[in-house]
Nucleic acid binder design. Structure first.
Lengths: 245, 245
DNA sequence: CGCTCTCTTGAGCCACGTCAAAGGGTGTGG
DNA sequence: CCACACCCTTTGACGTGGCTCAAGAGAGCG
């Protein structure tokens, strides 16, 4: 039974004794603390192909990571929320556009300044590595979600991850905000808006969720949602699958 | 015209003056130089859910990154080749199984030792960050590929990325080795073996590729392959697409 | 109240999944 | 050296989930 549900966050750093940390900057976020807060009601924070000149911290709101294609098609690779960092995993040019889903507030740091600060504080380097690893895990699970299931499973997986992120990893969450449009969700899950809509309707009919206004749902049957998302699985060995209920 | 085709590799590090590097270890790979070479004919290097005790360097051969589900379905999140590192982006437990596609050789380092070496050499920390960023870019493009196109586009994208990786980023490549089975490719692209097979046949009929034995193809029309994969796109703005040649 | 934008619902079609069988390469044993 | 068996791949026939096209329903706003 190795499945200690979790295997997540905040451990890499603590593996090293916290003794040698002379700097007061405890977290990557604190680097942005002194920076001016910028507001953006809508549109792009930066464009795919631009030189990566800045790193951002999301203060408030939601953004989407977008790959645009010349044929008009679009892929939403992910969403960004308060406290997320933008651009730290980029090397030279931004490989995607980042746009505001709702009016947002961000702080920015020039790439050079960010690098300098990181270089001077070993603790922050570790935090950066930890952050990149978390980001990897998140993108990785998105790969699995896209390759794996049908429309309903993908939507359930998306709702689960939204519930977790917006609730500080508390689960089950009752209310899940979905500030992005159906088109954003569709492009994120590799589906069309119609299919997303139908899948959502089916979930409502099954009593798994119910709509609250337009941009939120209430999770009525968290367990069923988890099962449908295929999130509880990941066995790989034979001797599982007893699971009553 | 910001699109300097490239925007890639080996710059993050050189932004910092290379003055302060007392250690002889120039690259992450060199950490593994003294380690015993292990051989694995087939089966898993480690299992999904295992505690992440080691970091590996692939010396020779090909491996696959596998997510297994309790219902028997499988997702191949990616493939690993010579010089690739395995496990550096993991935090506590391996979130996937890594298996040998062909008989492989690897070197290993304990997690603790890896961390220690990294901590002592600032240059290596930068390399680690650079490595994680490259890995992010790779996984990111996999997300885009899965969310974007139909079977043929996905297969073309896969062939392109295989051609690039096995040829040290030289393109166009004539011969592309495909040591993995159709099932591996199918699970990687979110398709079935039959669909992969049919897509491959269609590419052959169009004269884009031709089969060489069982585990390799020759690229006959690289340009068409690139177009079909949707790789040349990524515009986003209107005024591009001049690009002679 | 009417306009517009987004979401929902419906009908038909097509690409891909499923089921089934045949083809081809590889290894083993006669 | 051939024969057989096994496994992987290819090809075919058919069904279905999701895409396309089209219309209708809410919600925000002047």
């Amino acid at each position: 039974m190795l499945i200690e549900s979790g295997c997540a966050s905040e451990n890499t750093v603590s593996l090293l004794p916290a003794i040698l940390e002379p700097t007061p900057a405890a977290s990557l976020s604190s680097l942005f603390a002194g920076q001016h807060v910028e507001r953006l009601a809508s549109g792009a924070l930066f464009w795919q192909g631009d030189r990566a000149t800045h790193v951002f911290e999301v203060v408030e709101g939601v953004l989407r990571i977008v790959h645009a294609f010349s044929d008009g098609r679009r892929v939403v690779a992910g969403f960004l929320f308060a406290r997320d960092l933008v651009g730290v995993s980029v090397r030279e040019c931004y490989p995607y556009t980042v746009e505001a889903v709702v009016p947002i507030k961000v702080r920015r740091l020039s790439w050079g300044r960010f690098e300098d600060e990181i270089t001077e504080a070993p603790g922050l380097r570790d935090q950066l590595v930890a952050h990149l690893r978390d980001e990897m895990a998140s993108v990785h699970s998105q790969v699995v979600r896209l390759a794996h299931g049908n429309a309903e499973e993908r939507l359930c997986g998306f709702l689960m991850s939204m519930a977790r992120r917006m609730n500080g990893d508390r689960w089950p969450a009752v209310i899940v905000d979905l500030p992005m449009s159906r088109l954003d969700i569709a492009d994120h899950l590799g589906l069309t808006i119609e299919t997303v809509s139908r899948a959502m309707t089916r979930l409502r009919q099954q009593g798994v969720v119910s709509k609250i206004g337009r941009y939120a749902v209430a999770v009525r049957r968290p367990k069923k949602l988890a099962v449908l998302s295929g999130d509880d699985e990941e066995s790989g060995s034979e001797e599982v699958s007893i699971r009553s209920n």
